[in-house]
């Protein structure tokens, strides 16, 4: 009977207790975040320069474009094949050449190998400016300089890849096990010898993995270079779109998918070989 009395007491107490998921402070913060988000949505939707009737018509338009793409037109397969080859060449050559440039950059951009503060900042500046400018914008610049063609494409892909490879390599260098470095210093080795023996062997696997990863990305990037005139399959794509040859466009899109999937398959095989 005593038990029952306790229970009665408990209910008497709990009547006044409430429970809610968040405290007052938390609820205020959440409310503020929601309000700001909602406000931003309303502002963006009302302010953006969109002709709404087109939006409601979009499903029809997309469907009719899709219809115009069918059936695929394979008559230009020779040209498509050689443009694909050119795309692969651009990606491969630029990745290959970037490897040589990105290594010294990563060396000076890594805190534990850079010779001094000035070189560290130079290295970081190179990485940041390379990474912040998209491949296609680099391509725009190089097309303006060297004219349309593969050279502009190769340079564009290289200039973007330097930042990518350099940054990841710099991080790999910063994350090495420092014990072998200490051991090499203890033998009386000079700085370059310490690098050659204690750092290079440790970052080699990372280096190959990063190069392979970037090659895969560069294949994708190289497919669009042609849209600004920098070579590869994109030139053909742009030309077909301009002439409303939608069936050829569809074939080119299919070819790009095949290329990207092949690239992914090759990279996954290579990655297994390296690791």
């Amino acid at each position: 009977m005593g038990e029952e009395k306790d229970m009665v007491d408990m209910t008497a107490h709990t009547q006044e207790r409430t429970w809610s998921r968040y405290s007052r402070q938390e609820r205020l913060t959440r409310f503020a975040v929601y309000a700001i988000t909602l406000f931003a949505i309303v502002w963006a939707v009302r302010d953006i320069d969109i002709f709404w009737p087109w939006v409601w018509d979009a499903p029809n338009q997309i469907q009719s474009l899709a219809v115009r793409m069918w059936p695929l037109d394979f008559s230009g397969w020779m040209a498509i094949g050689s443009a694909l080859m050119e795309t692969v060449h651009i990606a491969t050559l630029s990745t290959f050449l970037t490897a040589f440039i990105a290594l010294p950059v990563s060396y000076i951009a890594a805190q534990n190998t850079t010779p001094n503060k000035v070189t560290l900042w130079i290295g970081r500046l190179i990485l940041v400016s390379s990474r912040s400018v998209n491949t296609i914008i680099w391509a725009l610049l190089f097309v303006a300089i060297f004219g349309p063609g593969v050279l502009a494409g190769i340079l564009a892909v290289m200039f973007r890849s330097i930042g990518f490879i350099g940054k990841l390599m710099g991080e790999a260098i910063e994350e090495i096990d420092k014990k072998p470095v200490e051991a090499m210093q203890a033998t009386g080795a000079s700085k370059l010898k310490v690098v050659a023996y204690a750092i290079v062997p440790q970052v080699m696997p990372a280096f190959f993995a990063i190069i392979i990863l970037r090659w895969d990305i560069n294949i994708r990037e190289s497919t669009v270079l042609g849209l600004v005139g920098a070579g590869g399959i994109g030139v053909l794509l742009q030309g077909s779109i301009d002439t409303f040859a939608w069936q050829t466009v569809a074939t080119i899109l299919l070819a790009i998918i095949v290329l990207v999937i092949l690239g992914e398959a090759i990279t996954s095989v290579l990655r297994k070989k390296v690791i």
């Binding site: 014990k179 072998p180 200490e182 051991a183 090499m184 203890a186 033998t187 009386g188 080795a189 000079s190 010898k193 023996y197 204690a198 062997p201 440790q202 080699m204 696997p205």
Partner: peptide, 27 residues
Amino acid sequence: KIGMVFQGFNLIDRLTVMENVLSGRLG
């Protein structure tokens, strides 16, 4: 002229034993 042996061996794992041994001559 001062040899040192470490608790964690501090070998260069990815190099061969011979290269590790020869690295003692780096100076």
